[in-house]
């Protein structure tokens, strides 16, 4: 797919998601859910849409109405994972780790996994920097979200789209 196609497809997806949100806005969702959907859809260009109520509920529970901005955290994952049972994850951040200002938690959310809020890493300034790596299971191709929350209430995210060839969740 050419970059131009990709852009127009993205615009199309965004437009249809907005249309869907608009339709749902006619009373099917609770006001808070409508607000969250609107906030997230109005996020940085290229951010993945919230795909289902489960992920919306997780994000709302963790971050409330705070904006989830892209930046200051880096999520590295393979673009294609042969085996969904073992998918490497590396999370790093350039945010300070001082008592005054630090990352207090990093949340890993895998949109279409059975348990989408896969892990939470609670940190203190003693770790010096945010540099985490582990291996996770993925059921199918989806977006993965790494979202950092600072002690001052900022929320920073990065996203990785991972294509999964072998279902790792059964």
């Amino acid at each position: 797919m050419s970059p131009a196609d990709n852009t127009s497809r993205r615009h199309f997806l965004r437009a249809s998601a907005l249309a869907t949100a608009g339709l749902l806005g006619s009373g099917v969702l609770f006001p808070g859910e409508r607000l969250l959907a609107a906030t997230t859809l109005a996020g940085d260009p290229g951010d993945p849409e919230v795909p289902n109520e489960e992920v919306a509920r997780i994000l709302r529970g963790l971050f409330g109405d705070r904006p989830i901005r892209r930046g200051h955290i880096q999520l590295d994952m393979p673009a294609a994972a042969e085996d969904g049972r073992v998918v490497p994850v590396i999370i790093e951040s350039d945010l300070p780790m001082t008592p005054e200002r630090h990352v207090k938690a990093v949340h890993l959310i895998v949109d279409f996994n059975p348990d989408a809020h896969l892990a939470a890493f609670h940190l203190t300034p003693a770790v010096g920097t945010v540099s985490l790596s582990t291996r996770i299971k993925m059921k199918r191709s989806t977006w993965v979200r790494a979202i950092a929350e600072t002690n001052t209430g900022e929320v920073w995210a990065d996203y990785a789209r991972v294509q999964v060839l072998l279902n790792g969740c059964g």
């Binding site: 348990d115 896969l118 892990a119 939470a120 609670h122 299971k137």
Partner: peptide, 8 residues
């Protein structure tokens, strides 16, 4: 760290 069975 809080984990689920999604960790390998």
């Amino acid at each position: 760290f809080e984990w689920t069975s999604g960790v390998s």
